[in-house]
Design a protein around this nucleic acid. Structure first.
Lengths: 191, 191
DNA sequence: ACCTCCATTAGATAATTATCTAATTAGATT
DNA sequence: AATCTAATTAGATAATTATCTAATGGAGGT
């Protein structure tokens, strides 16, 4: 259930120390554990504890240099998750969009030909989402793609890459930023 | 400190039951306590408890009809608070913008003449914020104002209502929506 | 091999809180 | 006034968790 992820995001972020860490990383860029502990007047184990939680919800990542680990904020993901709550109703509306594996299988059988290409873009939202999910599975999460690369990928399935690319954005499968595309975390997908 | 309010927002919203309530109110409009309890399989006291918390952060309000109280979601406020976390760094930067009552008093003395009008718009951000806060105090929070009414109010202080109105938006004192203006919750103000 | 430096894990404590049942309050209707 | 209905408060319990100190891990440098 996607709700749990959203709950977890807010629960994690609903802590003064963690918000202060986020604030520090936002303005200061990468910082290492002891630096954070110093600035906040807490001990390193405590910071470890909080950083672990922030990494679990995927808004903090790290880079190692010798013995020191520098933590950074993934601002894009933070923004996406922060905004997700305002779409709560929409997601619930999509209870009816919940789909079994069997349904997916049938729809894909109907719309994908023997060469693995899409015969046509389904008009019905539910079916379209199934097909979109199928196509996007060939892309890697976390990676950044230039537009032509996205187009190429989609063309393996269907000529009309522009429409399908737009659908990806519209249904929150991916985000565009300055001509580059990146998969959204799955909990933001409508399927 | 505004941080505490933001912590409190996320802490409140970081609970499965409360997110489910938000989801219900979002799609279903106004609901009364027992209806919510029924839909979620919980008892009325439990719902009371959660609704109280949601009212505390001001994203739920109520309307009484006979014995029944209907609860609704304030979607606009929810969106504003949800987005606030992405501006955390900015706010921390404004630690230096923290201002004593005495400073406020001095700045207002310098910029407000004996008729209560603004002599000039301060160029320095800190002073401008003090003056903006002073002007906005004449408006009611929670009320919706058409643009001309905002203009009239500002003109009581200064001719250049357009500049000042724009500053109100820019510094998150208020929000414009389809030509109507409304004060933001104070925790979003930069002062 | 030893030492140093950071980060993490283990374990303990104290505080917070979601939920229930039972009791009470507050309006509205008879 | 008496009663009905919905909401809230009181009190108890069980679960979660932020923080600390002490111990362990792990990667470099001497």
């Amino acid at each position: 259930m996607q709700l749990d992820r959203l709950v977890n995001f807010h629960k994690t972020v609903g802590d003064k120390t963690r918000l202060r860490i986020i604030g520090l990383l936002k303005e200061g860029g990468a910082l290492h554990g002891q630096a954070i502990a110093g600035k906040l007047g807490l001990t390193p184990p405590t910071i470890s504890h909080h950083i672990t939680k922030l990494k679990e919800i995927d808004i903090v990542y790290q880079r190692r240099d010798k013995n020191t680990i520098y933590y950074s904020l993934n601002e894009k993901k933070l923004a996406l998750l922060a905004e997700a709550i305002t779409r709560l109703g929409d997601e619930d509306m999509n209870a009816e969009l919940q789909v079994t594996e069997e349904e997916k299988h049938n729809v894909l059988n109907n719309f994908i030909d023997s060469n693995g290409r899409l015969k046509s873009i389904p008009a019905q939202l539910k079916k379209r989402l199934i097909v979109l999910e199928h196509i996007i599975k060939g892309l890697e999460s976390g990676k950044t793609y230039p537009e032509p690369e996205i187009n190429e990928h989609i063309k393996k399935y269907h000529e009309d890459f522009a429409t399908i690319r737009r659908e990806f954005i519209m249904h929150h499968f991916m985000t565009r930023d300055k001509g580059y595309y990146e998969l959204n975390p799955k909990e933001l997908w409508l399927i």
